[in-house]
Nucleic acid binder design. Sequence first.
RNA 1: GCCGCUUUAGCUCAGAGGUAGAGCAACGCUUUCGUAAAGCGUGGGUCAAGGGUUCGAAUCCCUUAAGCGGCUCCA
Length: 611
Amino acid sequence: MTELETLRHSAAHILATALLEIWPEAQLAAGPPVENGFYYDVSLPHRISPEDFPRIEEEMRRIVHAGQPFVRIQTGRQEAEKLALRGRLGALTERPVPSEFKLDILRGIPDEEAITLYQNGEFLDLCAGPHVKSTASVGAIRLTHVASAYYRGDDNNPQLQRVYGTAFSTERELEEHMARQEEAKKRDHRKLGRELELFCLDEAVGVGLPLWLPRGAVIRQELQAFLGDLLAKQGYETVFTPHIGELGLYRTSGHFPFYQESQYPPIPEPTAWESLEREGCRCAEYADRVKSGLVGGYLLKPMNCPMHARIFASRPRSYRELPVRLAEFGTVYRWEKSGELGGMTRLRGFTQDDAHIFCSESQIEDEVRGCLELVRTVLSALDLRDCRVRLGLRGPDLQKYIGEPALWEKAEAALASAIRQAGLAFTQEEGEAAFYGPKIDFLVRDCLGREWQLGTVQLDYNLPVRFGLSFTGADNREHRPVMIHRAPFGSLERFLAILIEHFGGDFPVWLAPEQVRILPISDQQLDYAREAAAALRHRRLRVSVDEKNETLNAKIRIAEKQKIPYMAVIGKNEQSTKTLSVRSRRRGNLGAMDLMAFAEQVDDEVSSRSL
RNA sequence: GCCGCUUUAGCUCAGAGGUAGAGCAACGCUUUCGUAAAGCGUGGGUCAAGGGUUCGAAUCCCUUAAGCGGCUCCA
């Protein structure tokens, strides 16, 4: 634990102490430090709201001023259990009701581990520590928000109130942190997405179904073209597949029923509807039959892989043509629960920069390495260096996965070996696999510190079996290919969200929806302004002319707020000399430039995709 | 889906039981301007939706929806 984490952990204990001073009956669960601060989970009939924060904070300040030492108490398991039964753990006094969560946590601690308690003032808690010396060491502490969480993160468990706060050793650091958080909120892609007119989420269209506005569409097309160039070089072939497919296809792949709860229900054929009507089937019964897949129909595709598998199977394949790499910007639809939707990061319809590589086992390592290389190229080209890599393996609940354990072990071993070969630092996490195979994910943080999965490389021995895929080997016998699923962006929507926040809306010129805005000083210069715009457009630059009846200062201000990379001021002088007075959003006033020289310069910047 | 909070003009927000307001944006007119906001004027709202309490509801109560913060799940 770092020093700051220790301090925040102690802050959590101070929060707990304060909560108990106010509500002695509170049942405490756990209170760890987290990314930006700390929290404590508490079960309490009173609904804690931000309105309660002032009095809780006042109580906390009092505890800090009191300078209560944190005392570490080594104890026996039975002693601790007795205390918990008497309601004394996570409490200021003994209480008539046992400390249920503490008791449960205690029982979860392995036998060989020592049991320690920490006490400050009257507050006694089951806790491994460590802590700062005394409550006075926590110089600055503030509550930020309250949310809810299930005990131990399991939705079968009781729901707790989670009070979040942050703490630092000095008030100044706290103030700086709060200011940074405020700044970060200005980069929020939901805010910038609306202000810069990149996308919109319209309830009238459907929850979680995004509309890409013209300016956002420009960015998407640039991203697609950028990736398209890389894919062509790596020997990928482009395919297109429909948005819906036969239910049977997804039975074969296992999406139905393994992935059923994440899908829109099947769409039945009109004839199925009619024949059920003839049977006198009632609505509820009909709905049941559709849901359980007893009525045939189509599924809005939740993934592209089954269709790509069918493309592979569309004719006999020879070992000579492997690996077959099929790529598609495929839009998929998933039934995300309402509470988990958010901006462009969690949607019900989104587009993956998907591809499936069909190869022999001996090609796996090279191909996976190629994929990892591709993801890294993409991320570094866009300056997203701050990411971590995770190897996702099966979890303990084997019901959630398809396929033979032997194949899983092979796949997991192969991925682990490829990732090591690539020399990437990574963490290994159980329960993070896809239902058909293990995967390597690239995770980045958004402006508020939340982690999102972008790029992914997944190894799959199972779908080829389910689809009976094969190729003819050099031995003239049929062999089973292996499938690699990979998406360097992950989804274009989520990637856009992260990009918006990374650049704060100030995109590099090649991605900027509008690259140059021409600002005529008066309408005397309109003709030349339009002429100049046309010339720049000929160089395939994205240009507009601000023809509004406004002062130059106002036009500059507007362009700055819209984060246009280049402004070109045109007045009498520029008109007579056929030049532009160029102002760069990042570098300020660059002075007069020849029109064509300027076009050339911007063109270079665009084609080199410089940042 | 669950818990909490929120929802008033395109955006940001005031309005706390007596029948809706500001700034910005939009539109019009005047001004024709040299590197981050010219001036004046105009239009715009079944106060998220539905129900209830009340003589009277943006305001109080209930239900629903969406958004936000989390949890679980995931690109």
